[in-house]
Amino acid sequence: MDAEITLTVDGAARTLTVDTRTTLLDALRERLGVTSPKKGCDHGQCGACTVLLDGDRALPCLALAVAHDGAEITTADGLAADGELHPVQQAFIDRDAFQCGYCTPGQVCSAVGVLAEVDRGWPSHATEDLTADPQLTHDEVAERMSGNLCRCGAYVNIVPAVQQAGGVQA
């Protein structure tokens, strides 16, 4: 069953027809040709498709497109829409925080989300004192980035890249 929806993707409004079964990820990749979010598992088990959905990091593989009519989506490509890399992206290059690159756009979007969440004072499993504001320590970043698998094993570079982008000297 088809439905017409409008999504704002990386700043541009796109109207498209989707099957009610179409996930947000497939809408982006297969209907709109927006392939910056990657499909690694299609079941919310790897994080490769992470985008910013209405401002927060989320997994479009587990979202039905039809349920997100009107949503605003920012992909890793959209983070550099004006041609200038986002500080997280620059930090990933500086720290060689990727190898094959397939998990990278998801890592980047996730990192942008992490920095915002820490700014808001959101705690994590690694937060020792739940009542205090969290800091961008190694353990905090590693825990918060654990929803993004990297099979190449770039974690040890991803953590300092996120810290660098968050203004912490690592």
Partner: peptide, 17 residues
Amino acid sequence: ARRDGVAKVRGTATYAF
């Protein structure tokens, strides 16, 4: 630094599918 770095951090490097 990697020559394919910008394409990879933006997600514009094109994989098979």
